Computed example of a mutant assay.
Amino acid sequence: MPTNLSRRRFIGVTAAAAGLNLVPFGFPAEAKAHLVTWRGQVMGAVATLQVHHHDRAAAERLIERSLAEVRRLETVFSLYREDSALVTLNRNGVLIAPPTDLITLLTECRRYWELTRGAFDPTIQSLWALYRDHFSSPHADPDGPPASTVKAALERVGFGGVTFDANRIILPQRGMGMTLNGIAQGYLTDRVVDSLRAGGIESSLVDMGEPRAVGSHPSGEAWRVGIADPEHPERVSDTLNAVDQAVATSGSYGFRFDPEGRFNHLLDPRTGASAKLYRSITVVLPTATAADALSTAFSLLPPEDIERILQRLGEGQVRLVTASGETIRLQA
Rank of each mutant, 00 (worst) to 15 (best):
G158T: 08
D292P: 02
T239S: 15
A290R: 00
T3E: 15
V150Y: 07
P2R: 14
H52G: 08
V23M: 15
V150N: 04
F77C: 00
V214N: 04
D305S: 11
V206Q: 01
G254Y: 00
L95E: 00
R117E: 15
P218E: 07
A184N: 01
S280H: 08
E114K: 09
V192D: 03
R117I: 12
D133K: 10
R39E: 10
A332T: 01
D165M: 01
R319T: 11
V162G: 06
L285V: 09
V247F: 08
Y80Q: 09
P138L: 06
H265C: 11
D101Q: 12
A323S: 10
P211I: 02
A228K: 02
F164W: 04
V70I: 08
P230V: 00
R168S: 14
E64W: 12
A33C: 13
A248P: 05
E326M: 07
I227H: 06
T296K: 04
R156N: 07
A290C: 07
R197T: 10
T75L: 14
V94S: 15
A242E: 06
S295G: 04
L277F: 13
V36Q: 02
E221V: 08
R117Y: 14
R65W: 15
L115N: 03
P138A: 06
R256G: 11
P211E: 08
